[in-house]
Design a binder for these strands. Structure first.
Lengths: 162, 162
DNA sequence: AGTGAAAGAGCCAGACG
DNA sequence: CGTCTGGCTCTTTCACT
């Protein structure tokens, strides 16, 4: 899949710092990673080119944006032919309420995290984006009370480095 | 929950742009949002203070970091007393393999997205972080083949603005 | 609130050790 | 890989709408 990118301890430190705060200045990043600014800039560029760093995104409180409700929709497909899988995934990409799509192995085929205005909106979305789709056999919707994302990298990654 | 923050169309545009690219320069952000640099800077500051923008984070390819496997662990608690819930959540915060915790209503109580080295690591984690916990009644683990996050804001948010 | 201008800080390349 | 230099761009403040 990904090219044989080898990361050393300083690369991991850079990645870890950018994961925690993507708007850190190169100057501060260099200082905290223990590098000169020029070297740091070069490493970040290489990490981006190698697609180790794939993007920088702001996290937003859904409430003031009018997102009153979030849910996880577990989806089981009727058939698992490549055509069905691809058609369903292409369809999901057009649904703006979708936050994250997890393609899983187990009782379900997909877990789809959606963000909606209210319960009426969720009901309408469940029908139009899922139940009424020909590829879909069955869905089960769970309301999300709260969710917390962890922006630290796992510590076990440190053990591999010098 | 959140204070009565009212966002106008320009705020939404700023948030949308920062969600797509958190490292955009203030100059470019101002141009794309249709504001002077100084006004744009002031708005971003206000959005951060109001906790509408809660952070900026780099997205990383898990592969080169030694994350070979990801899974969603569905957890059912034995009891739902406040003490049990809080103890379990506090525990999860100490587990570095945890990526996201979804607290849900439905058949399960939590969906926990974890990132691990390999299947041996997952097996060990399932035992030590979940099954052996006194608060936990039952878990079900689903392998994540792939997941795609959508960094666009839902389009239905635009309709509220002038 | 928003703007424009001006000072200050940070960015980034190139040359060299 | 680190340092230094120099020019350039972006950031940030401030007085004025």
């Amino acid at each position: 899949m990904s090219k044989n990118v080898e990361l050393d301890a300083k690369d991991v430190r850079i990645v870890r710092l950018l994961r925690k705060n993507a708007r850190i200045s190169n100057k501060e990043l260099a200082a905290k990673a223990g590098l000169a600014q020029s070297s740091c800039l070069e490493r970040v560029r290489r990490l981006r080119m190698a697609r180790v760093l794939t993007g920088y995104h702001a996290d937003v409180d859904p409430d003031p944006l009018g997102i009153g409700l979030q849910a996880m929709v577990a989806v089981r497909l009727a058939r698992h032919a490549r055509a069905d899988v691809e058609a369903f995934e292409r369809h999901l990409e057009t649904v703006t309420e979708v936050v994250t799509i997890f393609h899983v192995a187990g009782a379900n085929d997909y877990l789809v995290h959606v963000a909606v205005r209210d319960s009426a909106h969720l009901r309408e979305l469940a029908l139009s984006a899922f139940t009424e789709r020909p590829e879909v056999d069955h869905i089960e919707t769970q309301l999300i009370f709260a969710h917390r994302r962890n922006h630290e990298l796992p510590v076990y990654l440190d053990l591999e480095e010098d």
